Amino acid sequence: MKKDYYEILGIDKGATAEQIKKAYRKKAIEFHPDKNPGDKEAEENFKLAAEAYEVLSDPDKKTRYDQYGHAAFEGGGGFGGGGMNMDDIFSQFGDIFGSAFGGGFSGFGGFGGGGGQRRVKGSNLRIKVKMTLEEVANGVEKKVKVKRKIQAKGVTFKTCPTCNGTGQVMKVTNTILGRMQTASTCHVCGGSGQIIESRPPQADAQGMVMSDETVSIKIPAGVTEGMQLKVSGKGNDAPGNNSIPGDLIVVIEEVEHDTLKREGENLHYDLYISFPEAALGVSKEIDTVNGKVRIKLEEGIQSGKILRLKGKGIPSLNSYGSGDLLVHVNVWTPRTLNKEQKQFFEKYLTDENFIPKPEKSDKSFFEKVKDMFS
């Protein structure tokens, strides 16, 4: 079982953004590889702290985590958070360490401007994936075609002579306060520390070619419209021998169902029946996300009655069971009647059995709405 992110950083749910950042920096410095060389446990704690910070420092991810827990990030690399490596950590959060380690990180590619070579990450790609309500309810594995940039075969790189492979150039300026040294990204190599030595004719100026790739994405049951899934390493490549590819960001888009309406984990179904069916009782077949089921309506059922089918809704992402299917019974009133039908209803217009006599158990519309949301 995965450890709670708040517990990892030693904070509570009410922590501010600044407190979260401060707690992460403290943990990261405590378990930093430079302070704990060869200590696998410290390295694992270092990664866990970064994973927790990646989620809790992002308001959207934090909201989803507070609501669904770790289940919000399951499937296909997670919805952000999970599976972070040293390259991800130093490239995303290296500036948080400040000068705690001399501005560099030995042994891990020199992120942050140390003496080593910078490791550049490729750009992310973003696609939308449409899902039917049945797929949302049951989870699905989707195969999507992605057009991404990859390094061309035969391309070679060499150390950038301008920055000597650091990805940064130093500039010294004389001011009234004395000599000031500043670092900026190398304009020749773009911060990668390498430039192209040779490339095949089909490659672009960065040594890249376009490639079509089929990516398999496992999407768990219970996802919602707009939720984002991160598939690590399936974005664009970056130039250089020491680079890593970006990520593929998959945005969930729900396809509207013909008869079922979703409300969180619950589903709603409008069932229309006739006067005779309402008076005599009837058996009806209705749609669910797992096929059709037959339900029995008792005689004398009233319009507006709500039948609750337990567990026939959408599973929760945190594996706490499933929502319900709420069947709304509507008695259909015919708009036109022939002569014989009119005579039938006129005959019973004043019949005492047809005069409305609601009982206390027959809730009003507003009471039913209140019950639905409570």
Rank of each mutant, 00 (worst) to 15 (best):
M208C: 10
G207S: 09
S198M: 11
P200R: 15
M210Q: 12
I196G: 07
E197L: 14
V209K: 02
G222I: 00
P201C: 09
K230A: 11
K230Q: 11
A205F: 14
I195F: 10
S211N: 12
V223M: 00
S232L: 14
Q202I: 04
D204V: 13
I217C: 02
E213W: 10
G193K: 05
S232W: 09
P201R: 15
V209I: 14
K230G: 06
N236T: 07
G222P: 05
Q228D: 08
V223W: 00
G240I: 02
G233M: 12
Q202H: 08
E213M: 13
V231K: 10
M210L: 13
I219D: 00
N236S: 13
S216G: 09
M227N: 11
L229Y: 07
T224Q: 14
A221D: 01
M210N: 15
I195K: 02
G193A: 07
E213P: 04
D204K: 10
P201I: 09
D204R: 04
A203S: 13
Q228Y: 03
E225M: 09
K234M: 11
A203G: 13
G226K: 10
G235C: 09
N236Y: 09
T214C: 03
S211M: 13
G193M: 02
P239K: 08
S211I: 07
G240N: 04
Q206N: 11
S232A: 14
S198T: 14
G226I: 02
T214R: 05
A221I: 00
M210V: 11
V215P: 05
E197N: 15
V209D: 05
P239H: 09
K234V: 05
V215D: 01
N236K: 06
V209C: 06
T214H: 06
K234G: 04
V223G: 00
Q206W: 08
P200K: 08
M208E: 12
A205M: 10
G233P: 10
D237L: 02
A205P: 07
A221F: 01
V215T: 06
Q206E: 09
M210R: 08
P200G: 12
S216C: 08
N236H: 11
G235L: 02
V223A: 00
G235T: 03
D237C: 03
Q194S: 06
P201Q: 10
P201H: 11
K218G: 00
S211P: 08
K234H: 11
D237G: 04
M208V: 05
V223N: 00
R199S: 14
